[in-house]
Design a protein around this nucleic acid. Sequence first.
DNA 1: ACATCCCGCCACACC
DNA 2: GGTGTGGCGGGATGT
Length: 779
Amino acid sequence: MEVECLALKDLTSPRKSFTVGPEEEEEEDGGQSEQKAPPPDLAHITPIKHPALVEPWTPTANLKMLISAASPDIRDREMKKVLFRPIENEKDTPASPDPVMEDTEVEDSCQFEAAEEEDDADKKPSRKQKSLGLLCQKFLALYPDYPPPHSPIWISLDEVATNLGVERRRIYDIVNVLESLMIVGRIAKNSYTWYGRQRLEATLEELQRRGRQQGYHLQMEAASEAREVGPGREDDGAEGDAGSAGGNRKDKSLRIMSQKFVMLFLVSKTQTVTLDAAAKILIEESQDSSSHSKYKTKVRRLYDIANVLTSLGLIKKVHVREERGRKPAFKWLGPVEFNNSGNAGNTVNVAAFTPPGATQPTASQDPRKVKMARHTSFNITPTSVAIQRQVSSAPSSPRQEPTGLLNQPVDYSRRTMSNNAVCRVQFGNITENRPSATPQNPTPSNSSSPLPPTSTRPTLLAPSLHPEHVFAPSSSSSPHCLAYLPSLSQPSVVMLYRAPDKPDQAAEGQRSPRLESEEGRKRKREEREEGPTVVKKKGASGLEECVTTRAEASSRTSPNQPACPSREQASNDSLGGHSSSEPAQPSHYLYVPNNAGLNNLNFLLSASQQPAGLALPPSSIPTLALPYVLLPSAALSHYPLVASGLAQQGSDAHNKLSFSLPAVMSPAHFMVGAAAAYGMAAASEISRSPAQTPSTPEHSRMYGSAAGTPHSPSGLRQAVSINTPEPLTPHTPKETTPTASKAFFQTPGTLGSVVSAVPTARKRGSAQRRLDVGHPPTS
DNA sequence: ACATCCCGCCACACC
DNA sequence: GGTGTGGCGGGATGT
């Protein structure tokens, strides 16, 4: 790995010139960044003060981070600062950070932010920010909805926990629910395979079937009618599940409860289930008659499950009014009717499903056999702030939907930006596949080895973004893309703006995601079937349509990839190809601090645009007077935009550029919430010339590190790749250019270093504690 | 006051 | 005994 790294570096070296320090050397970002090379533009752009001094964890800071992104170390530091800061400092240095404003211009803007941000960012994360729903979103953001079938993604819970900066315990909660839906499958201790939504539909179908068999529908009716549930009871079902699960242990709970809960929705006429009813039904089954306490416990668990399901976009919170008043309930947003055919796509074996507990990956392929790419994903740092509360808040209460705002937590999945969103950002995942391509295992097949998750490979970069994350306006036409970079100090959004071909589309992007939610899904479903255009919308269930579309059309073979066939083309285009207006890519990017009124959003816009105007295409951005910073493209180079397709992209290589920003994108964030809200739809593709895509070492690191340390900026390390428009497939790119791949690979080494650095983080239990650092556990 | 649900103790299942 | 899981519910936080 190390070696590789070197290699990468070498590669990058050329770039180094402006790239920030290759590595750690740099002292602190701020200064260094400038020093480094910053192209003139940058230099002034980022007037980062002396980082060392303050380390404000402000938007500006984010900027710095970006800049400094080049050096992972720095990032880490910063991240730490950030991460910890809130905790530790929380009050200590309250304002300092923001107010300080390191950057010049930015600062100004920052100031705006400052006020808020401090709150958000600095402060300790509110409870909402730590919610399971948000956490789940982050988790989901790490992996593609539709990973390539043949290259399963390996997940290390420990790593995930570390990266997300949470306790393992929390991850278990999420994973158990995801496992109940076969979104992940357990391989072994601490090891899971990520299936994404490929099997989701089939699983849901199966659950529906089972739910009916078990008579849940009757209970639901009873319950609904008479609040008091009639003791319909049937334990069988439950037990069956549990039993099947194999582990009988106690796993009856979350996993099974989750399935049952889902079953209730699937058999419900109204598709709405009140917590009360669900709890009662579940209690009965379990026979815990314990009564009230049991009830309370069940409800608590249901909240946990509901938060995860909400994050998946499968349900949303609602209230049902009753005589007494309104009761909390959840409405199913996922698919209810399954066409076998459709499901089939996934080829999930129902059988596999059966034993939920069992977790057999089986079904189609044994993951293990298949080489698994490690998804290092991550990077998501625990951004304290990162997540917008909106989102977070949502976990339980998605109410916003109506508004159609950003928030919806859940919808990430569905968030579709514009209909055509083309751009895609990928996080690590994408890469993952590629990596496989990497030297060692170019093809999935060959690698028989399961890949030790650990060091091995690297295949992945960082977690890929789901397409969702990216907004893509209509295809190529659109000029810019928005990316949400949670890792940045705050949740930030970066807009890459290319000389626009058409702003309009961007506008499209704006459409609130929400709208789609329900209706959209349906539509989507339809769409999928129809066709391909899709980019990434997600189906109701959150499934990406792209996949589906394509998948259906052709065989389901690879839902993932196929889905977005066009990419290649795109890639061509984008990569270098993208001739459109710009030859390669925008020379500059605008970075807009969130402060500006945008909720914590930061944007990078291509300089090509007039800064002042920030005028994004009108459509795209409503007039926003935002403070922004121009960043020379070079600056971004550090963050490697990797054209996935660079080299060979061959099939996969989409044009996506990935550029790794030290941020993590969580879908949610990405969401756009803000973006959307603002109407920025973004999206365009950014194409990057191959040359550009440098896989700089740093870059690689970023990816590689997938596992950032928790505290550390792991989050930062994420890479984002943006594709050209089009349908991107989820991430498939198995093969990417060599170079690119290298970059990814290297990561590991990088990671290693990083990780090592933070070993402590690893402490699992304590991992979270990082939070505590600041505050000792109360007790 | 009630709705949510974070947090982490602690039991259990495996090494 | 150590570690991975995850049940469970106290009590904090949000509304």
